[in-house]
Lab assay of single mutants.
Amino acid sequence: MGKSNSKLKPEVVEELTRKTYFTEKEVQQWYKGFIKDCPSGQLDAAGFQKIYKQFFPFGDPTKFATFVFNVFDENKDGRIEFSEFIQALSVTSRGTLDEKLRWAFKLYDLDNDGYITRNEMLDIVDAIYQMVGNTVELPEEENTPEKRVDRIFAMMDKNADGKLTLQEFQEGSKADPSIVQALSLYDGLV
């Protein structure tokens, strides 16, 4: 993909415009910024974590950033290329609610087996709590990752089998306004 070129080839721009919710001009602008920050044309896990640390200076986002990195890194080569970056950004910032929920499901399904187990969710929720640090005051019933996961599973795990399917996750998330709101945070920002 033209590693350190400051412009993408027209056919690449066209393809990314088809695969995302961005215009050709927006794709070019994002590429310019991506190459400025990642001259090699790729972003590794350490660089990704560094970006998260800028956004969450009062907590430790390392663990959460690693989980997000793994979802962005579609081809699992340990690096995020621009096409992976822009497609994930498109879903998280401008995707439909169902697209965002499928993306979030992939984030929580750490072993990619098609289910979110209690332990997988606990890993992610714990990482989120570490990331936000003491900057967020949580209600008593959610002031630990374990309590939050218990509440989520009580609401979403309809067949009580200890794991969530994509359908259970989507339906449960849509029924909880706070989850829908959290997924909409990026709307309109890009």
Rank of each mutant, 00 (worst) to 15 (best):
A182V: 06
A175D: 01
E14Q: 12
D187A: 15
K76Q: 01
E171V: 05
S90T: 12
N5Y: 14
G95H: 15
K32E: 15
F55S: 03
N143V: 04
D187S: 08
E137H: 06
R151G: 06
D44H: 06
N70T: 01
F69T: 04
F85G: 10
L110R: 00
R151I: 02
G78P: 13
T17L: 02
E74R: 13
T96L: 04
D176L: 07
E81Y: 09
D126Q: 14
N143W: 11
I128S: 05
K19A: 00
K147T: 07
S6T: 05
P139F: 08
N119A: 10
K3D: 15
T66R: 04
V132S: 04
C38Y: 11
K100V: 01
K3C: 15
K25F: 13
R18V: 13
N112P: 02
F64M: 01
E24P: 14
K163W: 07
K163C: 14
M156K: 05
C38R: 09
I86T: 13
K174S: 09
S6M: 00
S4M: 03
N159H: 02
V132A: 05
N112L: 06
P39H: 00
L164Q: 05
S184Y: 05
K32R: 10
K100G: 12
E137V: 05
P177M: 10
D37C: 14
K100S: 15
G47W: 01
G41L: 00
L43V: 13
L164R: 06
I86D: 10
M131Q: 06
D73T: 05
D37Q: 01
K50P: 01
T165F: 14
A160Q: 04
G95A: 08
S184H: 00
M156I: 10
K25W: 15
E74Q: 06
E168V: 12
F72C: 09
G114W: 05
L189P: 03
K106S: 00
K36S: 10
F34A: 06
L110W: 05
F34R: 03
G188K: 11
F48N: 01
T62P: 05
I124E: 03
V68Y: 04
N70K: 04
V12R: 04
L166N: 14
M155A: 12
D176S: 03
G162V: 10
S6G: 01
E74L: 00
N119S: 13
S90K: 03
G59S: 10
N5H: 15
P57L: 00
R151C: 03
L122F: 09
L8C: 09
S83T: 05
D176K: 08
D126Y: 13
E137R: 11
E14V: 15
E74W: 12
P145S: 04
I51L: 11
R79E: 13
A104G: 05
G78R: 11
E137A: 04
V12P: 02
C38W: 10
A104M: 06
Q49A: 10
E137K: 11
E84A: 07
